[in-house]
Nucleic acid binder design. Structure first.
Lengths: 116, 116
DNA sequence: CTGTATCCTCCAGGATACTG
DNA sequence: CAGTATCCTGGAGGATACAG
């Protein structure tokens, strides 16, 4: 782990939110977990374009921020499960709104990017 | 300019939204412009921690995405002005919600980061 | 004042190998 | 299967100089 050089600005609400959900896969993970608890391997399968290392990393950060929680089963083979916390649930409307806006904007975005 | 290596995923609404407002200063700029048109120099003064180059860059991208518009005055010294478009206005509720969530989360964030 | 051109730093995220 | 340890690289964003 490393320190941020340009220190994170705690005074800006938007920055705080971005810190929590801004990671590349975080909002996707949250969406998945909001539909029910999931094991890491399930998430890896769902997001095949993402390397497992990064998924784990983002899970860790989400957990650290208290929006998801981990349950570990003392079994062999090892099993663990991630699920939303009540704090995490409060993010859902926000994420849903972000998705909606993006979905609505898609046609314009395609034009801008010149995608058929 | 360079191309993105990992191509942008047009199928994910959240990614689209992040592409538009995810830049470090974009949401701040949008908030400012939502209060009224502003000249570049005003924005540079408002966000002194940001280098003018980056502000200009983000203005350009916002304009390219059609959420803000530029008005150029043929004067000397040169003058220009940026303002929201109607498309851009649709982003305001989203940004406001992000700010609200972040503001609410601030106490927990401080605890997590161990800030007095 | 507005805007571009260069150059550079640094870290999120990708790839892989490994341990328990 | 879960998780960690290394190593690496692209590209956002910072700094500065300059042009119109």
């Amino acid at each position: 782990m490393y320190e941020k050089k340009i220190p994170f600005d705690i005074d800006c609400g938007i920055r705080i939110t971005m810190e929590v959900i801004g990671g590349k896969w975080k909002s996707c993970i949250i969406q998945e977990l909001s539909r029910g608890a999931k094991r890491p391997s399930e998430l890896h399968r769902l997001f095949e374009e993402a390397s497992p290392r990064v998924i784990n990393q983002q899970l860790k950060e989400l957990e650290m921020h208290g929006v998801i929680q981990k349950k570990i089963f003392a079994e062999l083979p090892p099993r663990s499960e991630y699920s939303m916390t009540s704090t995490g649930e409060t993010l859902l409307p926000l994420i849903e709104q972000m998705e909606k806006w993006g979905d609505n904007f898609r046609p314009q975005m395609k034009e801008i990017l010149n995608i058929k």
